[in-house]
Design a protein around this nucleic acid. Structure first.
Lengths: 313, 313
DNA sequence: GGAGAACGCCCTGTCGTGCTT
DNA sequence: AAAGCACGACAGGGCGTTCTC
């Protein structure tokens, strides 16, 4: 009889079992690149585990908006929540949630507490890979165009850049902070870097390499370098971050760092229901196991990115 | 009393009212650009209307996968479904769904039936804008690097290119079909275009402009043009489609066509519950009204894109 | 193995109260 | 003053499943 047209009513089932089989993903509305890929990965892993995925987009990542998204999910009796939190304010807002439902936060740097797991991609390690590659290519004055302050990833990349320079005994050049993540922002910041020809605190000469905090910034950096009458990579090497679509055909093709977003998304779902808890129908969800590779024991579990070498540096 | 800690159980409510207040979005898993932006827009519009949005990603856009996604939603008692269908197979699979739930398909070309609304962005018009701009800039031999055949958008852009050339009395050059949407695909196709120096059916000379079916393809096209010893835009103008992030800092900055994805997403939601039906709590959802601008009366309602002129053509 | 209770909400029907004519 | 009317409080059944007895 189930063969012809019968379909179990999942609402009644949810009422009785007190599990909706729904998980919520809170995602920032801007910068659709990383977050959207993670969302897709979470959804696929969730479906695999028998869960459906609900989405809630947060336009401005302030605590109230995140709170609203969380409340929205709680009202709908969601079984678990993944918060994609590229900015500090989102991660902090997630911390406020009631302990009634498991929460995992995807962020490269946020303090983990017993009832809020954090995991992300190791930005420090990624930045070090980029800078190490530059330095092994013989560059010695490596500047950094970093992203906006409120982003975990921007901060992590600064730290990695600093650490690698320090360990290599290379001079620490002054930092150029971009106002956003776009090519125009990278262009403006790179002009500032190139303008300070010498004499100031960072050291005497112009940089021979620039590490940009993402590929779009790098695009603007390349442009600025050329406008200064210099060539890439001969005079100034440039490396980016993210492996944006088309980066292999930028001029020149961009050396950059690949972030395993898919892996991070899948790991987030594994972490949500990992502690032996089963799926909505009782099936067991495989728990993610992945060693924390840097940072304190209370920091997030980190996934390693990978360097992609092309012509720009 | 509701003030302190009470929260209405939406599951019980759904059981009684037979409405879950959930809508489903079926989205392709590849090419995350357009679809992901539309998904975000749908979610925001849905939340505005009191609905939550569930997501189901389809990795390979074949009919069985789409069917699975649709079944998945039906099992969960969803109130309506939006299918983002860039490829023909997805739109067709959506047609098979039972009439128990309203469905709207986001596709630039698919036949509309009484129980399946279709709406999308006018690819033909967008392509005509691009080609018209080229021709008004004095170009007369305008080639087209088109996208993979199974994509509605690729087909629409071919039609627009053809129509505009025909109406202007310009020669119709042979088409170069790219194998995908990436820069590498565009590069390969453009090399073929530039290799046929003359003598074949298309006419005697090499093109003085290339309309690429999207910005990534255009990136590869620019590269191929340069490898042929020609310059952009002096020898060969290039225009793209999509206004990808960073396109303003490509070298040269890319002339391209902006698709109002957000508007399309919001319109899809409006169309879902437009016919006087209210939101999950009875509130009325504003219906989208937008004139169909081309095609037969059974074709989709179309939203107009906009040309963005920069240095490449 | 088959009957029945319970999940929490919505909706209907009944009854009681207070006000009007 | 008695009867009618309007409205609010309250109890009960049922949505379709799961789980117990």
């Amino acid at each position: 009889m189930r063969g012809l047209g019968y379909r179990r009513n999942s609402t009644a089932r949810a009422l009785k079992t007190r599990r909706t089989g729904l998980i919520g993903v809170v995602s920032p509305g801007d910068s659709t690149f990383g977050p959207s890929r993670m969302t897709l990965a979470i959804e696929e892993a969730a479906r695999e585990a028998g869960y459906a995925t609900a989405l809630s987009v947060v336009r401005d990542p302030d605590p109230t908006s995140v709170d609203e998204a969380l409340e929205f999910f709680l009202d709908r009796g969601i079984d678990g929540i993944v918060v994609i939190a590229p900015v500090v304010a989102m991660a902090e807002a997630a911390r406020q949630i009631s302990r009634t439902v498991p929460v995992v936060v995807l962020a490269s740097a946020a303090e983990q507490t017993p009832d809020m797991q954090v995991l992300g991609i190791d930005q420090v390690a990624g930045a070090r890979m980029a800078v190490r590659h530059l330095r092994q290519g013989g560059r010695e004055r490596i500047a950094h165009v970093c992203g906006p302050e409120e982003y975990h990833d921007a901060q992590g990349r600064i730290i990695g850049w600093r650490e690698e320079l320090r360990d290599a005994g290379l001079p620490l050049l002054p930092l150029a902070r971009a106002g956003g993540w776009s090519a125009a922002d990278g262009h403006a910041a790179a002009r500032r870097v190139l303008a300070r020809k010498g004499g100031d605190q960072g050291g005497g000469e112009a940089p021979d390499a620039i590490f940009a905090a993402n590929d779009h910034l790098a695009l603007g950096v390349v442009q600025a370098v050329r406008e200064a009458g210099l060539s890439v990579p001969e005079d100034v090497a440039v490396v980016g971050f993210d492996v944006v679509d088309g980066a292999d055909f930028f001029s020149p093709p961009l050396t950059t760092v690949r972030q395993p977003f898919e892996e991070a998304g899948a790991a987030a779902l594994g972490a949500l229901f990992g502690a032996g808890a089963g799926g909505p129908d009782g099936a067991t969800v495989p728990r993610v196991r992945r060693g924390a590779s840097s940072g304190s024991s209370r920091g997030p579990s980190l996934i390693q990115p990978r360097l992609v070498v092309r012509a720009s540096g």
